[in-house]
């Protein structure tokens, strides 16, 4: 099968690979780059566990071919913490507010909320709930996720 050469920027590093065009972006990140923080849940765009940032915008990694990310800038959950493992304010808020239980959905929520809190630094509760409506948490810990967003946007909880 003909492979296609792609080059893109992932978490600040330039990456170049020859890949099969049918490779999904999530599988590219996990299996070619070993960035396993991006989780694979439903693989048809429902659960949001695979959410990553494509040129700064939250998108579903499973609803995109890696070949379509040629030339793009990608950020995954691995880009959030500092080099020394220091959590960023959003991640810290998640730990403070117990916003994760099993943690499977967490990378997707974090990436969705990374774009959201950047664009909307002072959201209402309704806006927060709307923002996370495309991510599923099967532990149903939504209330604490909303709480974490309030914390990180400096709102009284």
């Amino acid at each position: 099968m003909d492979k296609v050469n792609i080059s893109l920027n992932v978490n600040g590093e330039k990456v170049e690979r020859d890949i099969e065009p049918r490779l999904l972006l999530t599988d590219f990140l996990r299996e070619e780059l070993f960035l396993t923080g991006t989780h694979v849940g439903c693989e048809h765009g429902v659960c949001g566990a695979c959410t990553i940032l494509l040129n700064g915008e939250a998108v579903r990694g499973c609803l995109m071919l890696a070949v379509q990310a040629d030339g793009a800038t990608i950020e995954t959950v691995e880009s959030l913490a500092g080099e020394d493992g220091q959590l960023n304010p959003l991640q810290q808020a998640f730990t403070d507010c117990h916003s994760l239980q099993c943690g499977f959905c967490t990378p997707g929520f974090l990436m969705t909320l990374t774009q959201f809190t950047k664009e909307n630094p002072n959201p209402t509760e309704e806006e927060i709930r709307e923002a996370i409506s495309g991510n599923l948490c099967r532990c149903t810990g939504y209330a604490n996720i909303v709480k974490a967003v309030k914390q990180v946007t400096h709102q009284t909880v």
Binding site: G48, T51, L54, A58, V59, R60, L63, T112, Q115, A131
Partner: peptide
């Protein structure tokens, strides 16, 4: 239409 992540693409 879908969610933000869908509308972005």
């Amino acid at each position: 239409v879908g969610h933000k992540q869908i509308r972005n693409r």
